[in-house]
């Protein structure tokens, strides 16, 4: 935890043979049948696939929200799962090493923009002043600092999504998991969000996995993991320019 962030993030995230089975016996369903994936720091990859293909299950496994059945996950050089969780405090793992961006921003409605972002470092035990300073820096970087005192209900959809990106980044996690972050946005705003995510990935050397079937943004990925029947296939993306 005390190592410099950049050093921690060198390895990004690596997944090998990840499996997830729901239920037992005749009713068992194999949602993931041996998924492999590797995302380097600063890289943004797409995880695409039809409904029911296992995207959400994979995201939940990567987010340490549900336990995989088998496989191995390494996050920033640290093995977090190898047939069983290797980390005892998954809550702290999610707080400190994984950032989440959701389809809807899910900001805390009773906290202003700054505290919506600062709450993560605060939860990690950082002093309020330091947490807010860090939040404001990110809001500045995301060009939303002028709305720092606004409540979520006073923001537009795009502004809310930028705040949720700031929240995901504020603890400098090695990986960010984004679940359909552009789904509710029009093309222009969706591309703007993708620009921000790519810029932030480079700036903070964060590996970003974006689950999507949003046709507007799929062409912007340089690398895509296509998930089908619980297995992933890696393919090159168009890498269309976001400028």
């Amino acid at each position: 935890m005390d190592k410099p962030a950049n050093q921690l993030q060198k390895q990004g995230i690596r997944i090998e043979g990840l499996k997830k089975r729901y239920g037992e016996g005749d009713t068992a369903v194999d949602a993931l049948k041996g998924v492999d994936m590797q995302v380097a720091p600063g890289e943004v990859v797409g995880l695409v696939g039809p409904s029911g293909s296992g995207k959400t299950t994979m995201l939940k496994c990567l987010g340490a929200v549900i336990e995989p059945t088998a496989g191995r996950m390494t996050l920033a050089s640290e093995v977090i799962y190898d047939e069983r969780w290797k980390i005892s405090d998954l809550r702290a793992l999610r707080r400190d090493k994984i950032g989440f961006v959701f389809q809807a921003p899910y900001l805390i409605p009773f906290l202003d923009v700054t505290d919506n972002v600062a709450i993560l470092p605060m939860l990690a035990g950082r002093p309020n002043g330091e947490a807010r300073k860090r939040a404001l820096e990110l809001l500045e970087a995301l060009d939303i600092a002028h709305r720092a005192r606004a409540m979520p209900s006073q923001l537009s959809g795009g502004e809310q999504q930028r705040v949720s990106i700031a929240r995901a980044l504020v603890n400098r996690p090695p990986v960010i998991l984004a679940d359909e972050p552009t789904a509710p946005l029009d093309s222009e705003r969706a591309l703007a969000v993708m620009r921000i995510l790519n810029q932030m990935a480079r700036q903070y050397e964060t590996a970003i996995i974006i689950v999507t079937h949003d046709e507007k943004i799929i062409p912007t990925f340089k690398r895509i993991y296509r998930i089908r029947d619980g297995r992933t296939e890696e393919e090159a993306g168009e890498g269309r320019s976001l400028q």
Partner: peptide, 16 residues
Amino acid sequence: IREIAVLKLIGTTNRT
């Protein structure tokens, strides 16, 4: 409920 789920996801303890 949704905000609580988010709070738990981002690492808020049950005690909090």
